[in-house]
Design a protein around this nucleic acid. Structure first.
Length: 292
DNA sequence: ATACAGGCTCGCC
DNA sequence: GGCGAGCCTGTA
């Protein structure tokens, strides 16, 4: 398998693939192996370039949103201490373009779950229902189609550790595979209508809808509010003590962060997750024993 | 061990 | 039409 070089300025692959927007890329050698839709891909970073497995260059460039004018997007953020710190910390992080169904299904399974577990669920669904392929020495699996999951039963999904989410995923898979929920057709809807349609799907509320809008529909204004970002916003923009209603918070996010609010959200989110998580692990439990 | 996670839904008021 | 409890399961 030959690797081909493509240009990737203002980009950080590791940061992008491990910032909580996508959950299936596995470390492989000095890079990552995974799937872009039905194509098995290996990709690794060499400073301002990416090395990509045969023929996948164009697909990778689109998937990783290397065409986003990242410098301008970041320069357009509001000028405040929280965002300035996050922008500095997350240099090169891009909001990627995921396949619609895969992204929707994954975020339906994400509710009340930590990243590690979302990854496990994604892998279980892929291994059990997805087509497999080999790339650059790694075995990878495609995310199963809506039709494939619609044909499964609830127990099979529960066996993938979905719990109560199994029912929602199954119902939504049926709506999508029957065409009643025309995910591709919804691309042309304005933000508000798209969000309303998504929220009609079982297991999809405002948070999941905004994630799908941001990570799959390229709505860079969409601003998902989860417990992490809520913590950050209250602390950095409202002061811990002050009480604020969810609606006020929502209005603030939609107005303050502007047309690339989703990018701002992702930067604030990832910065907070990394720095707060580190505090929690300040006393490492897995010390490497010193051999005599 | 036992809270508690990157929410949604339904039932209750 | 707002509020709170319940839902499954792995991780910390």
């Amino acid at each position: 398998m030959t690797l081909k070089e493509i240009e990737a300025a203002d980009f950080n692959l590791a940061l992008t693939l491990d910032s909580g927007q996508v959950f299936h890329w596995e470390p492989s050698g000095t890079g990552y192996a995974g799937m872009i839709a039905d194509r098995a891909v290996y990709v690794e970073q060499r400073s301002e370039h990416l090395l990509v497995s045969g023929g996948a260059g164009i697909a990778v460039r689109k998937y990783l949103a290397l065409d986003h004018p990242l410098r301008e997007i970041c320069a357009g953020f509001p000028d405040d201490p929280a965002l300035n710190a996050a922008r500095d910390y997350c240099r090169g992080l891009r909001i990627i373009r995921q396949p619609l169904w895969e992204c929707l299904a994954t975020f339906i399974t994400s509710s009340m779950k930590q990243v590690a577990h979302i990854r496990q669920i994604s892998r279980a669904l892929r291994e059990r229902f997805g087509a497999s392929a080999t790339v650059y020495g790694s075995h990878v699996y495609a995310f199963p189609s809506a039709a494939r999951l619609a044909g499964a039963n609830q127990k099979q999904l529960r066996d993938c550790a979905l719990g109560y989410r199994a029912k929602n995923l199954l119902l939504t898979a049926r709506l999508v595979s029957s065409g009643e929920a025309a995910l591709e057709g919804w691309r042309q809807l304005p933000d508000g209508e798209l969000r309303a349609r998504l929220c009609e799907l079982p297991g999809v509320g405002p948070k999941v809808a905004n994630c799908v809008m941001l990570f799959a529909y390229e709505r860079l204004r969409a601003f998902p509010i989860d417990v992490w970002i809520e913590r950050v916003l209250k602390e950095k923009y409202f002061g811990r003590k002050r009480k604020i209603t969810p609606q006020k918070l929502r209005d603030f996010c939609d107005n303050y962060f502007g047309e690339h609010g989703g990018y701002a959200q992702q930067y604030l989110f990832h910065h907070a997750r990394r720095t707060m998580a580190r505090k929690r692990n300040a006393k490492p439990t897995r010390q490497v024993p010193v051999s005599q």
